[in-house]
Design a protein around this nucleic acid. Structure first.
Length: 917
RNA sequence: GCCGGAGUGGCGGAAUUGGCAGACGCGCGGGAUUCAAAAUCCCGUUCCUUCACGGGAGUGUGGGUUCGAUUCCCACCUCCGGCACCA
């Protein structure tokens, strides 16, 4: 009876022992520049995992998937001699934690800390090589102090358009004072025209500066979610519902803290070119930013003292603008309602207002009503009607368009329905039988533009528009400024106070953090009107300038704290920087430490070396974090222009479910296998097995704790990596896990005597085994770097299956390539074999190129592309030798009888193809 | 509708530059060991055809380029992800 076989029980014992040992001896602690024992000559590797949100329900199988991948990479580079930064922390502020606290009636500070404990415990049982000394949570005062500090940096930065760079507000003041800039009519900095800084009074100066800050108060139509009791960013609203909870969202004008992310639109686009990210994610960001070039054109409204400004990407078609359309929320509509009592108009606007975005999207049938106003088309000199219609959106461009039915299908549909005139200004080809013509063609019916192609016509008309004062060329973005305030409790307070005149003041850096007040009552106020929860904490809310640490006001001046909180994204925007230097009290991270881990010892690295995480954050976290990072870079606080040099998305782990004939789904526990058929127990009907998302309702969710209990961590790590390519979505199949346990068990048996538990050592090395080992070392190393973990594991399996008795030296090398994948087993064997220190610090084994090829190879001989025979030849056989050997092969000779050989194609080492007829 | 990605055995998947399709794992079949079972080990396992040797077909479908195509080109189908009246 062998007591030392590798089974789950032994695996768990080994795993617990080593996890304890690693923690106690600080095996995975990584020294920083300046620390004793730090080797500054080694290259760095910064492997980053997505910042987990510690929810009350614990880890999900998606976490171990991407975390194991990063763990293998980090362990591999460590063995290759790099300093590796790999840490874990907690994204702990935010709505879900607060919702969970409300459900359970326990304070979010408690539920969140508890959830963190659960998550940490679960992650530690996987044996990940995090440097736990670097752990922090966004709710730690030491951390959110710096989140507030970065907010103040954005507050004190303006974007210099000419330099395409964020600069300190102090430089803007200096430029004003020196006369280098003047203040234009739209309160923007200009070089000529406008007013001098000295002509402005104090309030005007303040308004000018506030209008330039990257963090500013904007009166905006925001996405208000009554159910969640908070406003949401555009990115958090999907089809008119909240991303979290899927509650209805309505539009509401609100004065809120905003980030001027639109100023960085071009920088955010340009930066994508320099980073190694999935193409799909780059294009999602590009589309989200939605840059387009065109013109803003002013149309005089007939008999009214106002103009109507439209944005168009096709100013060249202005001669075909036969009517105008404004969105129902456009201010001109309010004026129309006041001066026009047409019941149709009133009814339409009322209906449009009550129509949700969802309903608008669902029905593409064009609707609209004439407003009663006419606009003057400056190109045709004709007056055209202004309609209101909900196919024009208030949130894009100016909320108004010039309608050109001849060149725009939407306008065509509308014009047809309401019998509006259509003028084609681009000549379609003779055989064109479509409706609106949107392709390239010569201009017509367009006076001085006639005959020009679209690009030339655009240039010509923009010149004309600008010369005649009708408008200007304009670059438009779909991206909106980022709404940054939430009306909830569980978030970072803003480092801002309000004085009695209603002016806002920054809290001094020395007074940070502005602590989140303890509140017993954190129930949200479900309401149609925004009511920040922190306003209920009166003692905290009302204070003095001195107490709040505000410069520029008398010490005893009464102030009221900003009662909004930051959204969940705040903490995750910069956490990777804090991993570098998590306990720094003077700075978010010491300069030289940040520089080493982000830019590298040679300054050439583009931030994080590998960031593995889901694709669902493509336009949220990944865009926001880039924006903050670019601002910090412009202000000289970080050393790389981009935060994440390489990004990789893992696929989703799905589950199985069953489908009835009518396509409805059946949970897995309501189906039985009978005679090889899947039968729904309740009905006796046959159902088919399909792949479906894991969900509680289908009862196909896999719990990581159960997996660890049943198999042990090393087996589970191997299985999630072996399922398929990391980036693919793939179904969980518990039956397959056993294959990985068998592989580990065989590996163990190849190196350890299962009767005595002592390491095995064959007397002499078997040459074929040695070759297989070299091949495995080469393949595993190369595959890890390519993130091809499934084939790396297959290579190790092939080695173990093909190996004869191993020498101690062979075991020693094999256990080192196994170590990144199955670190506990590898550590155990390493020590039983008398290895020094931790296998995690052993060097990656070398291989000999010469041992990768066999001396003799079998190559295929084809006739007309079909394999007819195989011959064994020396692997370095020449072309001529191969051809001769192939033509001499008896099977080939027989096949060629009566045929003429026209050509022989020889690929050395691969095959011979004989063309014969 | 537009933009990505993907379609390979019963299942998950593998295939350097265009060069032996199905590595590796699961499952399944057969055998060894065992009183028996578990575990383990060995052999087999794309489909059709043949007693067999062998032959034929085959990487979503249809064409094309090539001595040779899972790989390149064209058209189409299906699935997944994203965007969607963006002027």
């Amino acid at each position: 009876m062998s007591d030392h076989r590798y089974r789950p029980d032994l695996a768990k014992k080994i795993e617990q022992r080593w996890q304890k040992h690693w923690q106690e001896s600080g095996t995975y602690r990584q020294a920083n520049p300046g620390d004793p024992g730090f080797d500054a000559h080694r290259p760095k590797y910064f492997g980053l995992d997505m910042f987990p949100y510690p929810s009350g329900s614990g880890l999900h199988v998606g976490h171990p998937l991407s975390y194991t991948a990063a763990d293998i990479i980090c362990r591999h580079y460590r063995m290759k001699g790099r300093n590796v930064l790999h840490a874990m922390g907690w994204d702990a502020f935010g709505l879900p934690a607060e919702q969970y606290a409300i459900q359970t009636g326990v304070h979010p500070a408690i539920t969140t800390r508890r959830a963190i404990e659960t998550f940490r415990g679960q992650l530690q049982r996987f044996g990940f090589c995090y440097d736990w000394d670097r752990e922090f949570a966004t709710i730690d005062e030491d951390y959110y102090c710096w989140t507030q500090w970065i907010f103040l940096e954005l507050y004190e930065t303006w974007f210099d358009k000419d330099a395409q760079k964020g600069r300190p507000i102090a430089e803007l003041i200096a430029a004003g004072e020196s006369g280098a800039i003047r203040i234009g009519i739209k309160n923007e900095p200009v070089t000529d025209g406008g007013r001098a800084w000295s002509e402005l009074d104090a309030d005007e100066k303040r308004a000018f500066l506030d209008g330039q800050r990257l963090a500013y108060l904007g009166e905006q139509t925001v996405n208000w979610c009554p159910k969640l009791g908070t406003a949401l960013a555009n990115e958090e609203v999907i089809d008119g519902r909240s991303e979290r909870g899927e509650f209805p969202v309505v539009r509401k004008p609100l004065r809120q803290w905003m980030f001027r992310i639109t100023a960085y639109a071009d920088r955010l686009l340009a930066g994508l070119e320099d980073i190694d990210w999935p193409h799909s994610t780059k294009s999602m960001q590009t589309e989200w930013i939605g840059r387009s070039e065109g013109a803003e054109i002013e149309f005089r409204v007939v008999d009214q003292d106002r103009t109507l400004r439209v944005y168009t990407t096709r100013p060249d078609t202005i001669f075909g603008a036969t009517y105008m359309v404004v969105a129902p929320e456009h201010e001109l509509v309010a004026e129309a309602l006041a001066s026009n009592d047409d019941p149709m108009l009133h009814a339409y606007v009322e209906a449009a207002r009550n129509r949700s975005d969802l309903e608008r999207i669902e029905s593409k049938e064009k609707t609209g009503v004439f407003t009663g106003f006419m606009a003057h088309n400056p190109a045709t000199q004709k007056d055209v009607p202004i309609w209101v219609a909900d196919y024009v959106l208030i949130g894009y461009g100016t909320g108004a368009i010039m309608a050109v039915p001849g060149q725009d299908q939407r306008d065509w549909d509308f014009a047809k329905k309401f019998e509006l005139p259509i003028v084609r200004t681009v000549k379609p080809p003779a055989d064109f039988d479509g409706e609106a013509f949107t392709e390239e063609g010569p201009a017509q019916n367009s006076a001085f533009l006639d005959g020009l192609g679209i690009a030339d016509a655009k240039r010509g008309i923009i010149e004309w528009i600008e010369e005649n004062g009708h408008g200007t060329a304009h670059v438009n973005y779909r991206l909106h400024d980022w709404l940054f305030s939430r009306q909830r409790y569980w978030g970072e307070p803003f480092p801002i106070v309000w004085d009695e005149q209603g002016r806002h003041w920054p809290v001094g850096r020395d007074a940070l953090p502005v602590q989140l007040p303890e509140m017993a009552d954190y129930q949200p106020i479900e309401s149609d009107e925004p009511q920040p929860l922190l306003a209920k904490a009166k003692d905290w809310l009302y204070t003095t300038a001195g107490e709040a640490g505000v410069d520029g006001l008398p010490h005893d001046a009464k102030v009221r704290r900003e009662s909004n909180t930051m959204p969940g994204w705040a903490g995750s925007c910069w956490y990777y920087l804090r991993y570098a230097d998590p306990s720094n009290k003077e700075r978010f991270a010491a300069r030289e430490i940040e520089q080493y881990w982000m830019a590298g010892p040679d300054g050439k690295s583009q931030g994080v070396d590998l960031y593995i995480g889901g694709a669902e954050h493509a336009v949220l976290h990944l865009l926001y974090a880039r924006f903050w990072h670019q601002v910090l870079f412009d202000r000289g606080h970080v050393s790389t222009p981009e935060p994440f040099g390489k990004m990789f998305h893992q696929g989703m782990i799905t589950g199985h479910a069953y489908q009835r004939a009518d396509k409805t789904l059946v949970p897995i526990d309501e189906v039985e296998e009978r005679d090889g058929q899947s039968i729904e127990v309740a009905t006796g009907e046959a159902v088919t097995e399909i792949v479906a998302k894991m969900s509680k309702s289908l009862r196909n969710v896999v719990n990581p704790d159960d997996l660890l209990e049943e198999w042990g961590a090393d087996t589970v790590r191997l299985y999630v990596m072996y399922m398929g390519p990391l980036s693919d979505s793939k179904p969980w199949s518990t039956d397959d896990v056993t294959g990985m346990l068998r592989f580990l068990s065989r590996s163990w048996r190849a190196m350890i005597d299962v009767d005595s538990g002592e390491p095995l050592n064959a007397g002499a090395a078997d040459e074929q085994t040695e070759r297989l080992l070299h091949r495995a070392i080469a393949k595993v190393g190369a595959d890890i770097e390519k993130l091809h973990f499934n084939t790396a594991i297959a290579a190790m399996i092939e080695f173990v299956n093909g190996a004869k008795a191993l020498t101690a030296d062979q075991s020693n090398r094999f256990v080192r390539i196994l170590a990144p994948f199955a670190p506990h087993m590898a550590e155990e064997i390493w020590h039983r074999m008398g290895g020094e220190g931790s296998v995690a610090n052993a060097t990656w084994p070398a291989f000999d190129e010469a041992k990768l090829v066999d001396e003799e190879v079998e190559i295929a001989v084809q006739i007309l592309g079909k394999v007819r025979s195989r011959i064994r030849v020396p692997s370095d056989a020449s072309k001529d030798a191969l051809e001769a050997a192939a033509l001499a092969d008896p099977a080939i000779v027989a096949q060629l009888e009566g045929k003429t050989v026209r050509k022989v194609v020889v690929v050395p080492g691969r095959l011979v193809n004989i063309v014969a007829q």
